[in-house]
Design a protein around this nucleic acid. Structure first.
Lengths: 192, 192
DNA sequence: GTCTATAGCGCGATAGAC
DNA sequence: GTCTATCGCGCTATAGAC
């Protein structure tokens, strides 16, 4: 088992910085100071900033989607599955000593400043999440634990939107407590 | 009646830029090119960038809250009032030729890069909106047109979060059509 | 109030020694 | 793979002429 290599360390630090400050609020200088190397050394691992961002998005998306698929495949009840899914966002908000938003919520806000390959990655993260939410909601509808009027796809967009938006608002005001209450409120709205 | 003065023009352009690119993605150069003056001339009206941002936030918040108070004070049914409130966010998204998010959703994402006086202004915009949503929801609960389990304050946070978050997601994917469907879905969830 | 010119800094990126 | 040194650029901000 080898120790954490520099490349991974750079990704870790960059992710933390973007989740707090945004892409355009974070710099190679910030990364280098946290990692403990010179900024020119970052270019050895990621020649351009876009290379770093692309690698970061791929890692984040793959990891997140893998966990979500695990939740869906589990033997938990639909209600527990959805709660665990929302718990991923709560965990992100509360990780570290300062409030972090979802990486793709930050990139979504700054979307118009990103190059096309990166925009596509953000887009597919959103789509992957909404697709999984549709599956998750359908499980609950089928076994009778969920009940709501209207379209399942639209309900998935609503839930994903309030999770991504709720994290941003929680950082400015009510904190993780408010975010947790919002999620519980959501559960009440769709439970049968 | 005097014609639009430069100061107002600068605020208009800056607001549009921030709603598309974020605070850290927008520059004095961008503003000067759109307004048609030199960058240094902007400093005549707003000595520091923070002065510009503070004036922008005050104007945006005052204007928005005044409209919302008008909606609340109107003789419309509670359901219509809420639909009109959500319509303000839809109008923002669809104004201009490119998708714009709420000014305070953009600043909320980049909150950790802002100075304290600006953070406070973003915070009070959120609070003002949630307060108005509480009033609006209580009107509907009282006259029986709304019905939902749980706390009204939490429901207000949920709605505000999905509006702010939904706009960000709409820009990347489903557009204003998806955003509109999400709002209609919300109406169905809380109607009695 | 707008202009030209420029200061001073931080950014991403590159070259070349070790 | 990390370092030092540096380039070229864009940024906010200031000084001073008109």
């Amino acid at each position: 088992m080898k120790q954490t290599d520099t490349k991974t360390l750079i990704l870790d630090v960059a992710q933390d910085l973007i989740q707090r400050l945004g892409v355009n609020g974070m710099s190679y200088k910030d990364i280098s100071e946290s990692v403990g190397i010179r900024k020119s050394s970052i270019h050895t691992h990621f020649p351009k900033k876009d290379d770093l961002l692309a690698a970061l998005l791929d890692r984040y998306s793959d990891c997140f989607v893998r966990i979500v698929d695990g939740i869906i495949a589990s033997s938990d009840a639909a209600e527990v599955k959805l709660r665990r899914y929302c718990g991923l966002f709560e965990a992100t908000l509360s990780s570290g000593d300062q409030d972090k938003a979802c990486l793709c919520a930050m990139l979504g806000a700054e979307l118009a400043t990103l190059n096309h390959p990166l925009v596509e990655r953000v887009r597919s993260f959103y789509q992957a999440n909404e697709e999984r939410l549709v599956i998750l909601l359908n499980i609950g509808l089928k076994d009778g634990s969920f009940q709501f009027a209207g379209d399942t796809q639209t309900m998935a967009s609503l839930i994903f939107g309030l999770l991504e938006g709720g994290m941003l608002l929680a950082r400015a005001g009510g904190g993780s407590d408010q975010f947790h209450r919002v999620i519980e409120q959501l559960m009440q709205l769709i439970k049968s």
